[in-house]
Measured scan of single mutants.
Amino acid sequence: MQAFVKTLTGKTITLEVEPSDTIENVKAKIQDKEGIPPDQQRLIFAGKQLEDGRTLSDYNIQKESTLHLVLR
């Protein structure tokens, strides 16, 4: 499924993900596309910070959801 990641600069990245993907996995995909190390990434969805060990389905993130990427 497709999900979108919006950065603070307003850029939107499109990712191909599965509901079973972990947040860690998603961060690795963002690193592949953008070169941002996962340890600098914080992903926010519905106002919550997403934890590495959880999956997209844990957070009820469905296709075409938009996550927000904040860098630390």
Rank of each mutant, 00 (worst) to 15 (best):
K11C: 08
P19E: 08
V17W: 03
L69H: 00
E18L: 15
L56Q: 00
Q49F: 14
K27P: 00
K29Y: 07
G53S: 11
E18K: 14
K29H: 04
R54F: 14
D58Y: 15
L15R: 00
K63F: 08
E18W: 13
P19W: 09
Q62F: 11
G35T: 03
V5D: 01
T66F: 09
S65Y: 08
V5Q: 01
H68T: 12
S20E: 11
T9Y: 14
N60D: 10
L56V: 07
L69R: 00
L71R: 08
T7L: 15
P38F: 13
L69C: 02
Q62K: 12
Q41Y: 14
K6H: 13
A28K: 15
R54Y: 13
N25K: 14
R42V: 15
I13D: 01
G10H: 04
E18P: 03
V5P: 01
L43F: 03
D39R: 11
T7H: 05
I13S: 02
T22G: 03
I44F: 15
S20L: 09
L8P: 15
Q2M: 14
L8G: 12
G10V: 02
M1V: 06
E16D: 11
E18H: 15
G53A: 10
L56Y: 02
T9V: 07
S57H: 10
T22H: 04
L43A: 00
I23C: 02
Q2P: 08
G53V: 06
E51P: 03
P37Q: 06
V70I: 13
F45T: 02
E24S: 13
E34T: 15
M1R: 04
Y59F: 04
I44P: 00
E34Y: 08
N25R: 14
Q41C: 06
V70Q: 10
D21V: 03
L15H: 00
T66I: 14
K48D: 06
I30P: 00
E34D: 05
E34S: 14
K33F: 08
N25C: 11
K11F: 09
Y59T: 01
G10R: 03
K27M: 06
V70C: 09
Y59G: 01
Y59N: 02
G35R: 06
N60C: 06
Q49T: 15
E51H: 09
E16F: 14
G47L: 04
S65Q: 09
D58C: 03
R42M: 15
K11S: 07
H68S: 07
I30Q: 00
I44T: 09
F45M: 06
L56T: 02
I36N: 03
K63L: 08
T55F: 06
Q2N: 10
P37K: 07
D21K: 01
E64H: 12
I61T: 03
M1H: 05
I36L: 06
R72L: 14
E18R: 14
Q31S: 11
R42H: 12
P38I: 15
L8E: 15
I61A: 03
E24Y: 15
D58T: 05
T12R: 08
L50K: 00
Q31L: 10
A46C: 10
Y59V: 03
G35Y: 03
I23T: 05
E51T: 07
F4W: 06
D21W: 10
K33D: 03
T14L: 12
K63M: 10
V26G: 00
I61W: 06
T66Y: 08
Y59W: 02
F4Y: 14
K48G: 06
L8C: 14
D58R: 02
T14H: 08
E51C: 10
K29S: 04
T22F: 08
K29E: 02
G35L: 04
T55M: 10
S20K: 09
F4K: 07
A28I: 14
T9K: 10
E51L: 11
E24V: 07
P38N: 07
N60W: 05
E64T: 08
I23D: 00
H68L: 15
A46P: 01
I36Y: 14
T22R: 08
A3W: 05
Q40T: 09
T9G: 13
E18I: 11
I23V: 10
I36G: 02
R72Q: 12
F45W: 10
E18N: 13
K27C: 02
Q62C: 08
D21L: 05
N60G: 13
S65W: 06
G10Q: 04
P37A: 09
V26M: 06
E16W: 15
Q40G: 06
I23S: 02
I44D: 04
I61H: 03
Q40W: 11
L71T: 10
K27N: 00
T22N: 04
R72G: 10
T12S: 06
L15N: 00
P37F: 05
A46K: 15
G53I: 07
H68R: 08
L8I: 13
Q31C: 11
E34W: 15
D52S: 06
D52A: 07
K33Q: 11
A46Y: 09
L50I: 04
E16N: 12
V26C: 03
T55N: 05
I61Y: 04
T66E: 09
L67E: 01
V17N: 01
D52I: 05
K48A: 10
L69P: 00
M1G: 03
Q2H: 12
Q49N: 11
N25D: 12
Q62R: 11
R54H: 13
A3F: 14
Q31I: 02
L15C: 02
E16Q: 13
N60P: 04
R72D: 11
K6V: 14
D32K: 13
E24W: 15
I44V: 10
I44C: 12
F45I: 04
I30K: 00
T12G: 03
M1Y: 12
D52V: 05
P38D: 04
K11V: 08
D39P: 07
T7S: 06
K48E: 12
Q62E: 11
K11Q: 09
K6S: 08
G10N: 05
K63G: 15
G53E: 10
L56I: 08
V70T: 09
H68I: 15
I36W: 14
Q62L: 11
G53P: 06
G35I: 02
F45S: 03
T12C: 11
K27Q: 02
K29L: 09
Q41I: 12
K48H: 12
L56F: 04
K11T: 08
